[in-house]
Design a protein around this nucleic acid. Structure first.
Lengths: 186, 186, 186, 186
DNA sequence: CATGAATGAGGATTCATTCAT
DNA sequence: GATGAATGAATCCTCATTCAT
């Protein structure tokens, strides 16, 4: 039972997007069979790794719900989401590649994933009701936008993180209702 | 010499991100050796495929330069870029994964890539001088943002394209310099 | 000691020719180690399973001995043997694959197997003395013929059982000593 | 192209029922990939190996058709069949395990298999019309009986072959229409 | 006696790349 | 230039068996 933790610890040091169970086994100093006993497929391991990240995402949405300002709530939540994605390369697959998910309903991961989307939904809707985010954006789209920004950051350097996040947050604001000429007059 | 064209035509029907030279050879009705003669590595084929996309990107920046309005110019250019990325899955690698590029300097692709970045630079700087794009955004960052939005669209459906593009374009605008209270007063 | 019975009961529901101790353990709700404690090898489990079948085979030969007619005796015995083989896929291995038998002489199974062959011998010899079975057939050959018919039935469907048994029984009769022409004259 | 022959030659020295492509590759002094190029699955190799046996089976039925006496024809055909089965352990699988056959209709093997069953049918029907074989025996049953006798011979020694064949042939004769008492009176 | 996590050899399979023709 | 058979390292995955608790 200690092996499971060892495997997870080691797996966390690998890039979830290019995991090879054999490598994990070797690095964990564990037989390949042991890895398979605990995680029958690569996907299962990635899902197990993601459970913690998913929980933190849900916590983040809960924290956002406690935030007074809907705008601040959204901003902080999206920032947390991006940070978690950058730390856990498997999050994207778990959240978007449903096809590869085990059809075994109600697995820990499936449940956690549903909560995450509920969290996205709550934070987003609240912001939309407050008029600080465009009304035509869906939770799933926002989630994929986070993945997109994650992708852009990975293509460049971590230093881009804050700026690209900023751009994402600015981009999802409703279009200003005043026209440019009027603003210029100010 | 006819083979080369056949191979390129067939390769265009495949997803550049999951290209297998063997498959291309089979579909092109050509020996695998022939493919390797023309394209020693997968990367070489992807680069060859991208040359046309890169040219179109450069054309797009040229067209943008002819546009009167710097803002419109940028918008149209970024839209073209996103469209080209979605049509040519290899563009991202060619533009961002320099590490895998052949060190063979001044290959057709290297030259084309440089022109693309020059185009990005010109269109972006002009927009920045006009004050319609945040000044702290670099051409490379903008390029990676396009990749990020491409990624987000691919995760979802093509139907998201226009909306996510919109968000990207809104996001890179300079932050409004007036405060919310003032705007509300309007 | 209850485990042993549970394991045997469960194992009986599996096909002895494709037994996996892990599966048996799982189905029996018992640790794999427990299975190995009682049955160090697959063969040991199969032998244990066969003990009952072997006993019934011996009973069948005893019953045959009590039969008045040697021919009927043989027929009923062979039919019983075939039925037992079809019900217990491990019987064949226990009776014919001596090489894999535990060298542990006089194990319960070894003893039972010897009795079975004695039974075959008695029933067969009696039939041969009565002239209703070809004299050149050995008990071991007859036993393997039963395995052969078992095999043929398994390749097809249980519906073939009675017919193939019939063919076996007809086949081991002595060749008619009269010639075809004479018979035709009848 | 020489490899293919080498592989087939080597494979013939292995027991078709326990073939391992890795072993075949090693023994043939050929890369494992080469074996897979020619035979994508174990089944494919076994089928390729069986093609010759199947052809010989069909030849045997053709020869039987040229035989004057339907009884002799059947006898010789069944003997040939048994001999071929004993020489080619894969024949049984090819002829009886349709489930594992490639659904790719009209493969060389599928065609050959069909011809074999046609041959069985022709030889058997002729013998049945001549009244020398029980009328209720189907070609498929006869084929499986051959497999059964093959199995019995393999369990014992090759020395049993002729006798068990004899028993099979005697067993499939129609039951004598005269009663035992009458025969005894002769 | 019972447990079940751990083992790791072994076998199947893929695919990018080479090279003799 | 063109061919495509051959390669074999690499990876996935299974399962009989062991052994520390």
């Amino acid at each position: 039972m200690r092996s499971r933790e060892r495997i997870l610890d080691v797996a966390r040091t690998h890039d979830a997007r290019t995991l090879r169970l054999n490598d994990v086994a070797r690095d964990a100093g564990v037989g390949i069979g042991t890895v398979y006993r605990h995680f029958p497929t690569v996907r299962a391991l990635i899902e197990a790794l993601s459970v913690e990240s998913l929980a933190r995402l849900t916590e983040a949405s809960a924290a956002a719900a406690r935030e007074d300002d809907p705008d601040t709530a959204l901003r902080r939540f999206v920032e947390s989401a991006l940070t978690l994605h950058l730390a856990d390369g498997g999050l994207e697959a778990v959240l978007t590649d449903l096809a590869r998910a085990d059809p075994e309903v109600d697995s820990e991961c499936t449940v956690a994933r549903a909560k995450v989307f509920d969290g996205y939904d709550a934070v987003l809707r609240r912001a939309q009701r407050a008029g600080v985010v465009r009304a035509d954006l869906s939770a799933a789209q926002l989630q994929r936008l986070v993945c997109g920004i994650e992708h852009a950051v990975r293509l460049g350097s971590p230093a881009d993180r804050s700026m690209l996040l900023d751009i994402l947050l600015a981009g999802i604001r409703p279009a200003p209702r005043f026209d440019a000429a009027l603003v210029a007059a100010l």
